[in-house]
Design a protein around this nucleic acid. Structure first.
Length: 105
DNA sequence: CTGATGACGTGTG
DNA sequence: ACACACGCCATCA
């Protein structure tokens, strides 16, 4: 695995329960201007240890719900963590948003 | 090597 | 608010 994958996984594992982050945030944290695509693509091969359901796009939409393979749907997992989802979008998105470059610094 | 693709983001109309 | 185009960068055909 490349260094990039490792970094993405490291950050993804650091996401606190009940919080979510965006692909762009991780991309910027890794130094990419817009590595969002790479982050999403990296998550494509993410092991089950990675809470990929906590990673959404900048709009707070569950863009990964189609690609997320799991026993429970992405929405269910997020709702069990205390989030509110409506029409595949996280409500109070800004309230639960967790930015690595700001929080983790 | 060139072109297409992708779990995206930002700018513009 | 919505639609579209372009950028970004790694992988695959």
């Amino acid at each position: 695995m490349n260094h990039f994958f490792q970094d993405v996984y490291e950050v993804a594992k650091m996401i606190p329960r009940g919080k979510v982050t965006t692909y762009g945030a991780i991309g910027r944290y890794l130094g990419k201007k817009n590595g969002a695509r790479m982050v999403g693509w990296a998550m494509n091969g993410c092991p089950p240890e990675i809470p990929a359901h906590r990673v959404v796009n900048s709009k707070g939409e569950l863009s990964a719900r189609e690609n997320f393979h799991g026993p429970k749907s992405m929405q269910t997992l997020l709702e069990e963590e205390g989030h509110t989802i409506q029409r595949h979008k996280i409500q109070n998105f800004e309230r639960v948003l967790w930015l690595p470059e700001k929080e983790l610094l």
